[in-house]
Amino acid sequence: MFEARLIQGSVLKKMIDAIKDIVTDINLDCSSTGISVQAMDSGHVCLVLIELGSDGFEPYRCDRNITLGLGLKALSVVVRCANNDDSITIKAQEGTDNINFVFESPNGEKTSQFEIKLMDIDSEHLGIPDTEYDSVVKMPSHEFQRICRDMSQLGDSIVVACTKDGIQFSASGDMGSGKINLRQSSLVDKEEDQINIELNDPVHLTFALRYLNYFTKATPLSPTVTLSLKAESPLCVTYPIGDFGSMKFFLAPKIDD
């Protein structure tokens, strides 16, 4: 028996909105420690990794490891039927080919039940190595979203460069070019408005903006985002989910021919 109740059901809605343009099907890998999802886009250019600890659910029950394959289209249709302040319970019995969703309003007056057929999804899992990054930059998530959106008006690719002077985003195309520089903040009122730059080594990488704009669909999940960069390696974009999980996106760089 698998059962997990998320008090803030809106978090599930936001997670699905964040990945539905990248992947069509996902496997929920459920164990006693929590739920994880790993899925790649069809071109194998980017990967989404969701990790949710069991302590984010009340109750959480997973008698034995179980993989639940779901089509995001059906999942998206169902979670849209939940109100933002509803709790969402996910239930699956062993040996059945359905997954159940129960939505409950905060006062308990309204409950809704939905069932989705499980799918057998053949997904490749990649081993993601522990990486010591050259630079790790934490910034407001809306700021990152704005930069990606603005830069994509100029070109298809963005160059991200971290030096002791800060982080620079640049793009160029037929129309012209643009650069945006961010420096480490000195004094800010709210921690979530802070720009924090850890630099071990200067780094300079190029990425396709199309994918970064998909990743920023996760902005409603968290006020902050972390970019982890290493020379000639995939970028890792991390959105924390409350204090119990995260959504990470990995993006393969563009490299000089």
Partner: peptide, 14 residues
Amino acid sequence: DNSQTQLTHFFSKK
């Protein structure tokens, strides 16, 4: 010009 790499180039299949 830049060409797009794939993740399988960096991360091994499990």
